[in-house]
């Protein structure tokens, strides 16, 4: 009896059954997480320390001043405006078209040859380098449609970025739709809902949080792109918006934060380094603001769905 108990105790003892491989694996996972975290901290620290001369002296003034030849007066207001407008146009164009296309592909198209072909095309488009979209934008939105967009304008830039994120919006939306359990749609049909009613009242609400997260991430990504809008013609120099109307602004010269960073780093004088870093901080703020909105809306949707 005692012998059995001792043996059992030995078998159950922590040391014997401790899972060494699991421990190693877990340490590796934590290590990966630490690296990701370290990179994030490094990015933030570099940006903030380099921008310190400006951030410590005139943080608000820097954000709200227009561009200028004078380093002590130059700010990134036009860049912020440009970036926000670009993001708005991109979202306004890419979201409805992309979400609509994804709903069609997932819910209506079925398994036809056309649907499969479209699917492959979309996936490949998602991998096309952004500068290629810039060339497309230059040819179509600046060239062919220049009369409407005003040429090298924020509209042309926004449309170009919309093309860039469209495949990503389609793919993430498709994935979110696919993640909705089939039983929910079945339940809807079982009560006598039409296909459209099932999509509108069952599938889309259930997929909304996923769609939102994916699409807003894609916009945040696009807001940081420099290459395509550089090709389409965002300005890197100084310009005045003065007393232009809204339409004139939309069709006129524009700049954006990534362009300004690019411009600042090209300046020969050392002083402008702080401006480049300051503009980086500004772009981080814009992206964080966008993501916060997405996270907030997602949390609200989630709460409504499973309170």
């Amino acid at each position: 009896m005692v012998a059995i108990t001792t043996e059992l105790r030995r078998q159950l003892s922590v040391k014997r059954s401790s899972d060494r491989a699991g421990l190693v694996f877990r340490s590796l996972l934590v290590f990966s997480l630490l690296i990701a975290f370290a990179i994030l901290v490094a990015v933030l620290l570099t940006a903030v320390t380099r921008a310190w001369p400006i951030l410590s002296e005139r943080p608000l003034d820097f954000l709200t001043s227009k561009s200028s030849q004078d380093p002590s007066r130059a700010g990134v207001w036009q860049g912020i405006q440009g970036s926000v407008m670009l993001a708005a146009i991109t979202a306004g164009v890419a979201f409805p078209i992309g979400i609509g296309a994804a709903i069609y592909l997932e819910e209506y198209a079925g398994d036809t040859r056309f649907a499969r072909f479209t699917e492959v095309v979309v996936r490949n488009l998602a991998g096309v380098p952004s500068i290629v979209y810039g060339l497309l934008g230059l040819a179509i939105f600046v060239g062919n449609l220049g009369g409407l967009t005003g040429g090298r304008s924020v509209i042309a830039g926004g449309l170009t970025l919309a093309c860039l994120v469209l495949p990503i919006v389609i793919i993430t939306t498709q994935e979110a739709l696919r993640a909705v359990p089939g039983e929910l749609a079945q339940a809807g049909y079982g009560i006598g809902a039409t296909q459209w009613e099932v999509i509108r009242s069952v599938v889309l609400p259930a997929a909304a949080p996923g769609i939102l997260t994916g699409t807003v991430l894609s916009i945040a990504r696009a807001a940081g792109e420099a290459a395509p809008i550089l090709v389409v013609g965002a300005l890197t120099g100084v310009f005045q918006t003065g007393t232009m109307s809204f339409l004139e602004q939309m069709q006129g010269f524009f700049t954006a934060l990534p362009m300004q960073i690019f411009a600042f780093t090209k300046q020969p004088s050392e002083i402008w380094g702080a401006h480049a870093a300051g503009a980086s901080v500004a772009i981080l703020l814009v992206v964080i603001a966008l993501n916060s909105v997405a996270i907030y809306v997602r949390a609200r949707l989630d709460r409504n769905l499973r309170k």
Partner: peptide
């Protein structure tokens, strides 16, 4: 659709909507 309004269905796995 009209048929399914008159002839309801209950499934193997409970499948309430993620709503109230």
């Amino acid at each position: 659709v009209a048929v399914r309004r008159r002839i309801g269905m209950v499934f193997q796995k409970p499948n309430p909507f993620p709503k109230s």
